Computed example of a mutant assay.
Amino acid sequence: MDTKEFQNIAGIRGGCSVAIDNVNEDIYLGGSDGIYKYNMMTKLADFYKEAGKNIWALFFRRNLFYISYPDQKLHIEIDGKFAVVKEFESFEVDQFHVTTDSEDIYFANKTGFYKYDNARLKVNVINDVITVRQIAEDNDGDLYICTNLGIFVDLKHEGFKKVLDLKNIYSITFDKDNNVIISDEKRIIKLIHTMTGCPGKDNSHW
């Protein structure tokens, strides 16, 4: 991010997803024919597991999860093997996220955005109008969702509030300084937080 340098990662076909195990410093890459791990020494993608599976998305929280395409089923790796997550067998899953602190479980598909109540084994509808493109947490543990209507943040007891009114963005993440990184069809954009706000406004903005 600092140097703005980039390179293609050879050895993976149809790559479209990434998950990072920060504890073990493993970088997982999803391709159209399985899951790969990025090799820091060779700077290539080495095959990992799930040969022949088309990987829609990857997520890591103590375990590695992946969503398969086109059936949109959620899988988890346990003891070196992957299996469909039983609690989500009856759902299509396009986006999936487990929060860092409270371990709340969120997922989204074509019908809306949901929160899974693990204690009651119940799915609660958060919004059945928006299309969620990505779910991410910032460095403070605040939850953001990137949607077709803009970016929303979870204000806990107040629910989700829109904080960025852009409709052509497809992903969101955060750098080490907690600045927002978003992307559209052609660009990767960093939004730097400021406490001065826009002219004529008193509140803080990106």
Rank of each mutant, 00 (worst) to 15 (best):
L29G: 00
V18K: 02
M40G: 06
A83K: 13
N24H: 14
A57E: 09
T99L: 00
I67G: 05
G11D: 09
I67P: 01
Q7R: 06
D26T: 15
R13A: 12
A19P: 04
D26G: 10
F91W: 14
C146Q: 08
F91A: 14
V129C: 03
F152E: 15
F60M: 10
F88V: 07
F82Q: 02
I12R: 00
G80Y: 06
L64T: 13
K43W: 00
T111E: 08
Y69H: 07
K37N: 08
P70Q: 07
R61A: 12
F152C: 15
T131S: 09
I27W: 08
G14C: 09
E25Q: 12
I78G: 03
G150M: 06
D117W: 12
Y28N: 01
D79C: 14
I20G: 03
K73M: 11
F82P: 00
F47W: 00
E50M: 15
I20H: 04
V18C: 04
S90T: 15
F59L: 01
A45I: 05
F65R: 00
E77H: 11
A19Q: 03
L29H: 01
G31N: 02
I78Y: 07
N63H: 11
D128F: 09
I35S: 07
L64C: 14
V18M: 07
D101P: 00
S17C: 07
N139D: 11
D104S: 09
V153H: 05
F152G: 15
I35G: 05
K43D: 00
D71V: 13
K73P: 06
F88D: 04
G31Q: 02
L64F: 11
W56C: 00
H97I: 00
G150N: 09
E77Y: 05
V85A: 02
Y66G: 05
Y114H: 08
R120E: 10
F88H: 02
F91L: 11
D46F: 10
N24W: 12
R133D: 07
I35C: 03
Y48P: 02
D154A: 06
S90M: 15
S102H: 05
A45G: 04
Q72K: 15
D117L: 03
L44M: 13
E25W: 12
E89C: 15
Q134Y: 00
K53Q: 09
A10T: 14
S32H: 04
A136F: 05
K115Y: 09
D101G: 02
R120D: 08
M41Q: 10
C146P: 07
V129D: 08
Y106I: 01
I67S: 02
I27T: 11
Y28V: 02
Y28F: 14
L58W: 09
K86E: 06
I9L: 06
E89W: 14
D101S: 06
N148H: 00
K81L: 09
N118R: 05
L44Q: 10
R120Q: 11
S32Y: 10
N63W: 12
I9H: 05
I126N: 06
Y38L: 10
L74G: 15
Y114M: 05
Q72P: 10
D101V: 07
R61G: 02
M41S: 09
V23T: 06
K122M: 13
V129E: 06
I126P: 03
H97S: 01
F91Q: 10
V98W: 01
Y106D: 03
V93I: 15
F60S: 11
R61N: 10
N63K: 07
I67E: 01
K81T: 14
K73S: 10
